[in-house]
Simulated assay, not measured.
Amino acid sequence: MPNVGNLQNLKQLSITNCAIKKVNLTEEVLPNLESLDLRQNQITTLWGLHSLIKLQTLSLSHNQVGKSMTICQKDTVMPKLLFPNLITLFLDHNDIRSLAGFNFENMPMLKYLFLQHNELQDINGVQSCVGLETLVVDHNKIQVITEEDFHSDNNIRSFFSEYNKIKFLNFVRRLTKIEKLFVSNNKVSDKDQIKNLGTLKRLKEITILGNPLCKRTNHYKLALQALVTLRRIDGHSVIPKDYLDD
């Protein structure tokens, strides 16, 4: 039996590039663990990790989590709170096609969620994350995002959804606290979609370049007409009077 006494005070642990398929790390072994890096393995199940009650950061980038994140073993009752103190979760590069079954509603402290480079067609499943501040879904296959995909009292400050297939931006009206919005390289062709920015009084930065509408109109001017408080567009600082003055 290995001596685990030296692990009692461990706060950070990194086990990467080890071809790990299953993980069973419990609070009894790592009671004070706050950050766990399991990048670039072959993990499909997370049984045991949910008991790490002090865990704040979990990186599962480049694994095989797939369609749903398995927490409990068969015939085991799902705990009310899966990761009670988890703040940051990396699930990018996992071939995830759906968020159903991830039980984000049981992660009450989650603020930063990274889901880029997956196979998502929608983001249904994150609306229960009331405290979420940063959501990253770049490089997926998302075609439609609706207002209902976000909690009515959401705290989203930054939303990254570049390189998808999104045509409509009406969903942004639900993001009343957003400061940064990245929607470049999608399928937005109707210039009237930019008018949805008008309700986002805190928005300071946006990316639009790479959408069809950019080929036919001055999207800088459209964006500033919708929201004159914008300060960065497509990575460039802008002065409203330079675009709005005749």
Rank of each mutant, 00 (worst) to 15 (best):
D149T: 02
L81A: 11
L91N: 06
V130S: 11
Y163W: 09
E34N: 15
K74M: 15
C129K: 02
E28N: 12
S51W: 14
L224P: 02
Q225G: 07
K21R: 15
A223C: 11
L49A: 03
E148R: 10
L244P: 00
N103I: 09
Q127T: 09
L52A: 08
V137C: 02
S51E: 12
L99C: 08
I96C: 04
S98W: 06
L209G: 03
C129Y: 00
I123L: 03
S59V: 07
E147N: 10
K195I: 13
I43N: 01
S158A: 11
H117I: 07
L224V: 06
D153A: 10
G66K: 04
S158P: 00
E28M: 14
L181H: 02
S68D: 11
V126H: 01
D246Y: 15
T176I: 08
N32K: 15
M69H: 07
F104Y: 09
L89C: 07
D190Y: 02
D149N: 08
G66D: 04
D245T: 13
V77R: 09
N32H: 14
N154A: 04
F83G: 01
K22C: 09
E179M: 15
N218F: 06
G210S: 15
L197G: 03
I156G: 02
N140Q: 06
L197I: 01
K187D: 14
K195P: 05
L213P: 04
K74T: 08
K11D: 11
D92Q: 10
G131W: 01
K167G: 03
D245G: 13
V65M: 11
N103H: 13
H151G: 08
A100P: 01
R216M: 11
L135G: 00
L197A: 03
R174T: 00
N170V: 15
H151P: 06
T229C: 13
Q73S: 14
G5S: 14
N170L: 08
L209F: 09
L115G: 02
L58W: 07
F160G: 05
N140E: 02
I87E: 13
L82E: 00
D138Q: 01
K191Y: 06
D92M: 05
L86W: 00
L175N: 01
N211H: 05
K180I: 11
Q225N: 06
N85G: 07
T57R: 12
A226D: 04
H93R: 14
T199V: 11
T146C: 11
G125C: 12
T44G: 10
I194T: 05
Y220P: 00
I43Q: 06
N185G: 07
V172R: 07
